[in-house]
């Protein structure tokens, strides 16, 4: 069953940004990554799904129901964590979480305390006094305390330290195992890679590609930079899968795509001083997709 079905969704704000004709589906039990640079339309898509803004064209369904028409009904089973967390100030964390829980017709207090323990959050503090990271935790707890079937996260990790990020990812994995579907938006490819099954890449309001993480990894380039003791024959690394080869006094740089073993053998055969292998950043993946389109 598809939990989210987006078909030809369009939202325009006058002439400026927005999204154009977006279609994709998220299947039940999936962790779906939604990546793109800032301003690409990630938040616009998510806010449309949540009924915060209205589409100018197309439609979106959640749990098989139109997300505008049945908004309040489907939101019973949605947990949402916005990128910027601002909650009613002058309120204690516990009061805010209780207020949040009061919208769901079930007892959430047990889960609420569990989550607070896991994330190490002091419920008796005032929200005004919390640091950005701790506010984020409040956001995570209010999004998860009712054990939603669909979790929507809009750039959730900013402000969390690596340790907390790991705890948070563990939480999400756990929720996913219990059956929750997750839509995870981010501009950082690496965090999506760790967690997600499939990703959609969005740029300038359009879906550029939609692929399994495994396929995406295979089809992406790695950046190699190799320093050797002696100058190499210019053609030494010129094998299948190597692109943009450059050599300069004992330093070779190139992009490689394909079976890494073949290039590693080549490297092992020579005497090297140093080596750098980088994952391409998001921008480079975009470049890759643009090249494919042209």
């Amino acid at each position: 069953m598809s939990v989210i079905e987006i078909s030809n969704l369009t939202k325009t704000y006058g002439k400026a940004r927005g999204i154009n004709n977006i279609s994709f589906t998220v299947e039940e039990g999936e962790i779906f990554g939604f990546i793109g640079p800032n301003g690409a339309g990630k938040s616009t898509t998510i806010r449309t799904l949540l009924g915060l803004i209205y589409p100018t064209g197309g439609s979106a369904k959640i749990f098989g129901k139109d997300c505008i028409k049945y908004g309040s009904e489907i939101k019973k089973e949605i947990g949402y964590l916005p990128s910027e967390v601002f909650y009613y100030e002058n309120m204690k964390v516990l009061d805010l979480l209780k207020y949040s829980a009061s919208f769901y017709k079930k007892d959430c207090s047990k889960r609420m305390h569990e989550l607070a323990d896991i994330l190490d959050l002091d419920l008796s503090k005032k929200i005004d006094d919390l640091s950005l990271g701790n506010r984020k935790k409040v956001g995570i707890i209010q999004g998860l305390l009712h054990e939603p079937k669909l979790i929507i996260l809009d750039e959730p990790t900013s402000g969390l330290d690596p340790l907390m990020q790991q705890k948070f990812f563990d939480l999400l994995t756990e929720e996913n195992k219990k059956g929750a579907t997750i839509l995870f938006s981010s501009h950082i490819l690496s965090e999506v890679q760790k967690l997600c099954d499939r990703v959609a890449i969005i740029k300038e309001g359009e879906i550029v590609t939609l692929e399994k993480i495994s396929t995406l990894k295979e089809s992406t380039y790695k950046k190699f930079k190799i320093e050797t003791a002696v100058s190499l024959d210019k053609e030494y690394f010129q094998i299948k899968g190597v692109n943009d080869l450059e050599e300069d006094r004992g330093t070779a740089t190139f992009l490689f795509k394909g079976n890494v073993n073949s290039i590693m053998k080549k490297i092992a055969a020579i005497d090297i001083v140093n080596i750098w292998i980088d994952e391409p950043d998001l921008e480079e993946i975009f470049m890759h997709y643009y090249e494919k389109e042209d």
């Binding site: 949540l50 915060l52 009904e73 939101k75 949605i78 601002f86 909650y87 009613y88 949040s100």
Partner: peptide, 10 residues
């Protein structure tokens, strides 16, 4: 806080 309130089932 509109985001908070309007993403609740109301």
């Amino acid at each position: 806080t509109a985001d908070f309130l309007l993403t609740k089932p109301v």
